[in-house]
Amino acid sequence: MAKLLYSVTMSLDGFIAGPGGDMSWLTPYLGPNPYVDELIGDIGSLLVGNRTFRGDDPYKDTPAEGEAFGGGWSGPQIVLTHHVPDAAWPGVTFVSDFGEAVRRAEEAAGDKYVNVLGADVARQCVAAGELDEVLTCIAPVLLGDGVRLFEEPGGRTVRLERLHLSGVPLASLLRFRVLPAG
């Protein structure tokens, strides 16, 4: 059975994108990461928010532009959007209902991970009790402004259990299991 994993790189001050969704800040930190490279093989599908899918790309102007994990992964992508396009995209399924998007992503992943991409989709997964794990790569930079890792004013406390802590030259890695509410 598939598990939902939110993977993200954030600045030390808690931002995953700069102002307006700018991802260019991430480019210097895209170097080798053996832990993430190994994990990519365990990903069966992506559940992606529309803003992330259509947003800025840290691989812009490189051969890896537009490719998941810089071309390190390929497979089915489920994009959660309020506006499903008329034209089909190869390998991409657009879905407007959250529950349906999760179901399709889990089905496509089989017994591998559904990798969640996008702050809003991750918040929805937490709120629905669907998120199983969080992998955060912390880049050694302070952005000062932008899109926060998790921001939900008035939100509830979510308990986590640390599964992994390590470092690579360009980031520190923290992996957590999301514990049941209660």
Rank of each mutant, 00 (worst) to 15 (best):
L135R: 13
R104F: 08
G129T: 02
T93R: 13
K60D: 14
A68S: 14
G182P: 14
S7E: 12
V36M: 15
A105T: 06
S7H: 09
S166I: 02
T9C: 01
T62C: 15
G72L: 13
L46A: 13
P169W: 02
G20L: 05
Q124Y: 03
G72V: 02
I40R: 14
I43V: 13
A171I: 01
V114M: 11
L46W: 12
L30E: 03
H164P: 03
D37H: 14
V79C: 05
G20W: 07
V121Y: 09
G31A: 06
W73D: 07
V134F: 05
G55P: 04
L135C: 08
L5N: 03
V48L: 15
G144M: 06
E65A: 03
A122R: 07
S74W: 01
G71D: 01
L165H: 08
L26V: 00
G155P: 08
D22L: 09
D97K: 06
L135Y: 06
L142Q: 01
T9R: 05
S166K: 00
Y113L: 13
G18P: 05
D56Y: 12
W89P: 09
V134W: 06
G44W: 13
L4T: 01
N50I: 10
A139T: 00
A171E: 02
F94D: 00
L39F: 07
T157L: 09
A64I: 07
G154M: 06
M10V: 02
L149D: 05
D37N: 11
R54M: 14
G44Q: 08
P34E: 08
D56T: 13
K112T: 09
G155I: 08
L12F: 04
E65K: 10
L5Q: 07
A119K: 15
L143Q: 03
P85Y: 03
R123E: 14
G182Y: 03
L39H: 12
V168G: 15
F69H: 06
V168C: 14
L80Q: 02
G167W: 06
A88F: 05
G146K: 08
E100C: 00
V102C: 11
Y6S: 03
